[in-house]
Each structure stands twice: as C-alpha cells, then as structure tokens.
Design a protein around this nucleic acid. Sequence first.
DNA 1: ATATAATATTAACACTGTAAAGTTAAATCA
DNA 2: TGATTTAACTTTACAGTGTTAATATTATAT
Lengths: 201, 201
Amino acid sequence: MGTKERRAREKEQLRRQILVAARELFVSEGYENVSMRKIANKIEYSPTTIYLYFKDKADLLDSVCKETLLNLLNTLEKLKNDKSDPVETLRRSGQAYVEFGLKYPQDYKLTFVIRPQFQKDLGLQEGSVGEKVFNYLREMVSECIQQKRFRHADVETTGQVLWSAVHGVTLLLIDFPDFPWTEKDKLIDTVIHTTIEGLKA
Amino acid sequence: MGTKERRAREKEQLRRQILVAARELFVSEGYENVSMRKIANKIEYSPTTIYLYFKDKADLLDSVCKETLLNLLNTLEKLKNDKSDPVETLRRSGQAYVEFGLKYPQDYKLTFVIRPQFQKDLGLQEGSVGEKVFNYLREMVSECIQQKRFRHADVETTGQVLWSAVHGVTLLLIDFPDFPWTEKDKLIDTVIHTTIEGLKA
DNA sequence: ATATAATATTAACACTGTAAAGTTAAATCA
DNA sequence: TGATTTAACTTTACAGTGTTAATATTATAT
C-alpha cells in the first residue's frame, strides 16, 4: 500500500518542477517580469495550480532563495577542511563568496536584495539557512581571533565588516557592469586583502 | 510677452509636482507597488498626463534617482572644504555616505539597486551625476595618495575598494534590519576604519 | 471671433496576482 | 463491485497594472 508514498513523491516532484521553472524564469527575466502564468505555461499546468504548492509569488521567491543560500553554504563548507592558515582560509572564503555571487548574479540579487523587500523581517532568523551561512563566517573569523591574528577580539563586528566588504563589491560589479572597474579579479582580491589587512593592523 | 516663459515655468512646476509625488510614493510604498494611477491621483491629474512629462515609469524612476544623486553629491561636497587631514576627510566622507543611505534608505536602494535593474547600461557614464559622485571620491583618494598616506598609488582601485565597503554596509543595514548587528554607528565606524587602515598598512 | 497650438482626458488593450467555484480522477469504504 | 469521500487541478472572475491612440478641452495668437 505505497500509494500514499507515491502520491507524496509525485507531489514533491511537481513542487520541484515549479521551483526549477520559477528559478529559471526569475533569473533570465527578473522577478518582476515573471508572471505566475508564465511559470504555469512552462510546466504546462494552470496558473492557479501553483497556489496549491506555494502561498503566493513571494513565497515562491522565498523558496528559490533558500535553495540559493543552501548552494552558497555548500560552496563555502568545502573550504572548511583547509586546516592550514585560518587567515588564508578566510581570504579564500571571501573570494568564493564573491565568485558565487558573480557566477549567479541574478540568484544573488534575488536572495540578498529582492527578497528582503518582499519578506520584510524574514532574513536571517534563528535556524534559517541564512543564519547558517553567517555562522560559517563566524567560525572562520573565530579561528583567526583565537590565534590572535586580528587586532580586535569581537567576532561579530569582525564578521560583519568582512561581509560588508564582499557584499559591497559583489553588488557593485553586478549592478554597474559598464563602470570602468579595475580588472575584476584584481579588484576582488584588493577588497578582501585590504579588509583583512585592516583587521590585522 | 512673457507668456511663453510663464508657460514653461508652469510646465516645469507640474513636472516637479509629479516628481515629488512619485518620490514620496516610491519611498513609502516601494517602486513596484506604486502605479501610475496612484501618482496621478495624488497630484489630481489623469494618469496619462504623466506621460506628457516622462517617457514611462522607468524614466520617472530615473529622474527621481538623479535627484537623489544630486542630493548625495551636495552632502558630500560640503565636506570638501575641510582642508585638514585628507585621510580624516575621506573617513568623514565615508561616514556621510553611509549616513545618507540610512537616512533615505528607500531612495538609496532605488538609486543604487533598483534603477540599474531597469536602466541596464545607464548608470555612471560620462557627465552623469553618478560619475560626479565617484569623481568626488577620486579627488579625496587622490589627495591621500599624493601625500603618500596609502600603500598603493592606484586611485581607481583604491576608490573602488572604499566604495565597496560603504555600499556593502549601507545595504546590509537597510536590507536586514532584524539581523543582530553590532551597534550601528560602531559598525559603520569599524568598516570605514578597517578599510582605511588596510589601505595604509 | 476664429484658427492654432498646447495640454489634459477618455477609452481601450493586453496583461497582472490571486480568490472562489467547479471539475475530474483516484482512493477508500460498503 | 458500486457509492462516496478526498485530493488534484482547471475555469472563471475581479480588480488592478503600464501604456497607446483618439478625443476633448483650454489658452494663445491672429
């Protein structure tokens, strides 16, 4: 009598189908330019079916963003095993963060800029994937501080400073592609290096 | 025969009225949630009248943002006279920048995040107000470099690093108001101080 | 007073997100 | 098996969107 399980599996499958279609459209056309009807067309269901799986369009966005955060977390966690120099690991984490943002610019913007606009106070509350990402940063920073590599001993502030730097450069590069930036990799490098040096000094 | 002038003045007046109404609504309700009809209602004209003064909704946003950039530029220029320590002036400029962003968070987001989404390549091209703002930053940085206060001699990269830092912290504070940030002023201070120290070291 | 130009409005189109009601197919129970 | 409940999906509908074209109104110039 596994019909219930099969049904549940099928339901989950359609949910994923919707999610995949939504992400593809959000990324290629921008959240605002994607209608529920477009998503529905893509998966060949009626528009209102989506509402059986997601509360509304913002909820759909929310789910897409949670996935993105999970991907980011996975990308970062891979660097954790690097047991060499904690400052070097931190530097590489910063680089991986920006790289991730530039590899999936629209996903990054959806998650860190568009979503907060639609889900006012939801963002990084306890237990969320977003919090886990920041916890990763906390760990990295903590290691550096324990080894007395940084001037200040405040894990929170230090982490927030680093996040500001990488978030800032990521968004600028995404949003103003025509600005006469310094060669991209050099700029990213300099941003991270400068911040870390500033923390040491 | 100053009727022509009067007419032009009246036209300019209505243009401003539209602009003011649009900004108020964009700021209080968010660009996406403001319809041309809402703006029209507010100024007590028919919706289509707006199209005699602005090409479309994106153009209206564009004009609002240009104003914001002008305000930002004015705010910054006031600090220019400060002929004391160029590094100190730079620090204060950074603070003023973030303060401006937090004082008018919605305007800041409209200008630096929403607008680029709607006006793809328009942003900081030659002669634009946006470029003037970055030129201000160039001047400040240049002064520091001339006085050999910074490690590198690259005005462009140095400016971009600073911009990344302040842009990043501004947006994070705006977008994630519920995150357990370090006390706001302390965080801003640390971000700017850290970056500048990193540039010196 | 009439013609001309400038300005504003009305009506319409093809869309939007989403709620309510209706339909169909599958699972359960008699 | 046949009736009934349940789950999944669709149709219809509403109020609202940006924007265009055609029309109307008003103020100026002749």
